[in-house]
Design a binder for these strands. Structure first.
Lengths: 242, 242
DNA sequence: CCAATAGTGTCTTTGAGACACTATGAG
DNA sequence: CTCATAGTGTCTCAAAGACACTATTGG
């Protein structure tokens, strides 16, 4: 009885009877290249904000996406060809003004990927471009993407201070010098070499996988590392670079 | 010309032409009462999940809400009568299964409020109840609210370790003993008295506002404090209670 | 040898953990 | 006085900052 009246309720329910905001997902995809932190931007070729630059993103495909993380991942793969990397939710923004079409909501994700495997893919795709993070303010940005980019950038900074996030922007294996450079670029500060190495090595987050040529090709060869299992989730009890 | 073709694009745009998920906001509202951490739950009197318990929440009112934070705040005020307190976003969950009606998305917020001003208001409202956090698993919970509650509880624990969040569940002014109790309940650990006081006092987060009767009415009177300006945003460089 | 990069020794400083201690109120 | 609660003194320990030092490669 309760069952059948619930069923009849569900049968007569039509989501289009209600005013609902439009919902989308946007991703700030970061990488390191030429000693700079860069973010992937796409040039819009449709209204609204035609010819403006935007973070990659789009709507949920109710047929294909099992959840919103899948939506984000689908967008990430379609822009970069990469599926492996760190992808996590930053925040959700929704208001009446951000999209001229309608009351609109977006969930912002950030992703970190190494540069190498993406460059060819992205050069093939027409309107996508790696933009150095300091140069994003010279572009005309669509919607509230300037603000979204700021949120993602801040999250990147703060998580770098107590996790090992930056290893996700490096091609493996990597040296400690490379890892320190990555930390410094993501946090936008200089770090002290000894402290950095002590912290990372004592936490047992990396495994040695041989030796390699040093940064720049000159000097003593560096020990190379890969992330150890479970290191992604390590939280330091103290923040770094203070 | 570009202007007018954009205008005609917008004029012909109708959000109901597209399949979009349904979107809602849910809030885990926490307080401290009788030495326990409690969360506000409401009993649903409509399908789906009629007669199940749920976190307070609801849909965006496209006319009244300027943004999704306003939606959350409106729900908070309507359930508790309180507007002042800490209210922040935890995460957004969206998938095809969580709501039997449709592909559905919710943004989860958490709020912290002192017990005192709300008790009368909530007793007047019929189907709302403060449930001790350990007893929530004895209730039949609607949708994925068991999982949402878990997310909020975890966020509460982790932020307590490096901020002064717990002060928001206390009526002002409060003693350091009360504040320590609040920390312990939100983190679900015991803290060492001296370390606790040193940490809080050295950080200059509180201002003295007199003396008051001790916990339980017996013993030496305690110094009472209120949060100093800007203390909400203080981040400790080291996590606590490790 | 030099230049360049990798990696270490070691002293100082900060702040948490442990835990015994003292202080101030009510009866 | 005792009991109860507030609040302190002080030692140890973990981990970051500073910075000078040594090590290993190619030329």
């Amino acid at each position: 009885m309760s069952k059948s009246s619930e069923q009849s309720f569900l049968d007569s329910y039509n989501p289009k009877d209600f005013d609902t905001p439009i919902y989308s997902v946007d991703i700030a995809i970061f990488t390191l290249h030429e000693g700079q932190l860069k973010v992937l931007m796409v040039e819009r070729n449709e209204y609204p904000y035609k010819d403006y630059w935007a973070l990659p993103g789009g709507f949920v495909d109710l047929k294909k996406d099992s959840d919103i993380n899948a939506t984000a991942r689908r967008k990430l793969v379609s822009k970069t060809g990469v599926n492996a990397p760190l992808l996590e939710q930053v925040t959700t923004v929704g208001n009446a003004k951000r999209d001229p079409r309608h009351w609109s909501i977006t969930t912002l994700y950030m992703a970190l990927i190494p540069y190498a495997p993406t460059s060819a893919f992205i050069e093939a795709v027409n309107e996508a471009r790696w933009v150095p993070i300091d140069e994003t303010d010279q572009l005309k940005l669509a919607f509230d993407h300037k603000e979204l980019l700021y949120f993602a950038r801040e999250r990147l900074k703060s998580k770098t201070a107590y996790t090992v996030l930056p290893m996700h922007v490096l091609k493996r294996p990597f040296s400690l010098t490379q890892l320190q450079k990555a930390f410094e670029l993501l946090m936008d500060t200089q770090l002290e070499k000894k402290s950095f190495r002590r912290r990372i090595l004592n936490a047992d987050l990396l495994k040695e996988v041989g030796e390699g040529v040093p940064e720049g090709g000159k000097g003593r060869p560096a020990t190379l590392y890969e992330p150890a299992d479970g290191s992604e989730n390590h939280l330091f009890v103290r923040v770094f670079g203070d």
